Simulated assay, not measured.
Amino acid sequence: MTGMIVTARHGRPNVDRSVKITAREYGFWWANYDKTGLAPDQEPPQSLIDIASEAEVVLCSTMPRAIETADAVTDGARIIPRDALFVEAPLPPPPFFPDFIRLTPTTWGVISRTFWFMGYAPKGTESHFRAQRRVRRIIKRLEQEVMAAEGDVLLCAHGYLNWMIHNVLTRKGWQLVEHKGGNDYWSHRAYRRKTKGRAEPVGKLATE
């Protein structure tokens, strides 16, 4: 029996989402977001700590917020491989918005993601098509890790990327067996490969 693949979203970053900024300023805000670690005084949920303690492999992206999340759920007790393969899908600032329009970073994020999803990708930015190809490489890597470890693999990554991973995993025959926290910070999804049309038993997670 192979193990599970678990994807977790990082904790809450130390940034201000209440500010009103222009579309151009959003580009600088997002660049700073990518350099920022977690806000202080956060505690990961016990369910995620338990998953990390039982996982044979824990991985994370090279973004500070993902690195600090992986360290938090493992209590710094293990060396965690970091890989840029797992960084978040990009969010370039949207085009064609005059500077008198000022919105919160959250609102700009929704607008930017919509433009990006529809194909907008300035020079030097990973397109949605290329991000999908990267997700397929991520899935291959996670499946290899699960088979090699013969146990659970936990990936501490990012909200939208994890959603993209979810879509590909489920199409490839992995069944979602647990989903906690929605898409909020510290949320996670756990998957197990289907066998003969049914998912393998989920063990301890089934009782939580």
Results as ranks from 00 to 15, higher is better:
residue 169 L to K: 10
residue 15 V to H: 03
residue 107 T to L: 14
residue 66 A to E: 01
residue 23 A to N: 01
residue 130 R to E: 15
residue 176 L to E: 13
residue 176 L to W: 06
residue 41 D to R: 11
residue 29 W to C: 03
residue 134 R to H: 05
residue 96 F to G: 03
residue 85 L to I: 13
residue 62 T to C: 09
residue 199 A to S: 01
residue 160 Y to F: 13
residue 127 S to P: 09
residue 153 V to P: 11
residue 76 G to A: 02
residue 64 P to R: 03
residue 178 E to T: 15
residue 153 V to L: 09
residue 97 F to Y: 07
residue 117 F to R: 11
residue 151 G to C: 03
residue 21 I to L: 14
residue 207 T to N: 02
residue 15 V to K: 04
residue 131 A to V: 07
residue 128 H to D: 08
residue 134 R to G: 08
residue 2 T to Q: 09
residue 191 Y to A: 09
residue 133 R to F: 15
residue 6 V to D: 04
residue 76 G to F: 07
residue 203 G to F: 09
residue 23 A to P: 03
residue 90 P to Q: 06
residue 52 A to R: 03
residue 131 A to T: 13
residue 131 A to Q: 11
residue 159 G to N: 12
residue 85 L to N: 08
residue 113 R to C: 04
residue 203 G to V: 06
residue 111 I to P: 02
residue 202 V to I: 10
residue 97 F to P: 04
residue 28 F to P: 03
residue 146 V to M: 01
residue 125 T to W: 12
residue 43 E to W: 00
residue 75 D to G: 10
residue 78 R to A: 07
residue 82 R to A: 13
residue 42 Q to V: 00
residue 172 K to F: 07
residue 148 A to G: 13
residue 124 G to M: 04
residue 70 A to K: 06
residue 124 G to A: 03
residue 48 L to E: 05
residue 96 F to D: 06
residue 76 G to L: 05
residue 69 T to A: 04
residue 178 E to L: 14
residue 198 R to I: 08
residue 197 G to K: 00
residue 151 G to S: 06
residue 9 R to T: 12
residue 58 V to W: 09
residue 32 N to R: 06
residue 161 L to C: 05
residue 145 E to I: 00
residue 30 W to S: 05
residue 26 Y to M: 04
residue 24 R to E: 07
residue 83 D to H: 11
residue 18 S to K: 09
residue 186 W to V: 10
residue 31 A to I: 01
residue 34 D to M: 12
residue 157 A to M: 08
residue 134 R to Y: 07
residue 191 Y to M: 04
residue 195 T to W: 06
residue 23 A to R: 00
residue 7 T to Y: 05
residue 87 V to M: 06
residue 181 G to V: 05
residue 15 V to P: 01
residue 162 N to V: 12
residue 139 I to H: 07
residue 94 P to G: 02
residue 41 D to E: 15
residue 18 S to E: 09
residue 160 Y to I: 15
residue 96 F to W: 07
residue 193 R to T: 06
residue 196 K to G: 10
residue 29 W to M: 00
residue 169 L to H: 11
residue 190 A to S: 15
residue 170 T to D: 09
residue 196 K to D: 14
residue 120 Y to A: 01
residue 186 W to T: 05
residue 72 A to W: 00
residue 6 V to I: 15
residue 197 G to N: 00
residue 173 G to T: 08
residue 25 E to K: 07
residue 121 A to I: 00
residue 134 R to P: 04
residue 25 E to M: 02
residue 137 R to Y: 14
residue 124 G to I: 05
residue 140 K to R: 13
residue 107 T to D: 12
residue 9 R to F: 10
residue 156 C to Y: 04
residue 117 F to T: 15
residue 57 V to A: 11
residue 134 R to E: 14
residue 78 R to V: 15
residue 28 F to G: 05
residue 148 A to L: 12
residue 17 R to S: 15
residue 51 I to Q: 10
residue 94 P to M: 02
residue 113 R to Q: 09
residue 74 T to H: 02
residue 25 E to A: 01
residue 186 W to M: 08
residue 199 A to Q: 06
residue 53 S to W: 02
residue 1 M to Y: 01
residue 185 Y to L: 09
residue 161 L to E: 04
residue 204 K to Q: 08
residue 169 L to R: 04
residue 14 N to V: 04
residue 141 R to N: 13
residue 55 A to F: 04
residue 75 D to T: 10
residue 115 F to G: 00
residue 51 I to H: 07
residue 186 W to L: 07
residue 171 R to K: 15
residue 123 K to A: 14
residue 198 R to A: 13
residue 187 S to M: 09
residue 145 E to W: 00
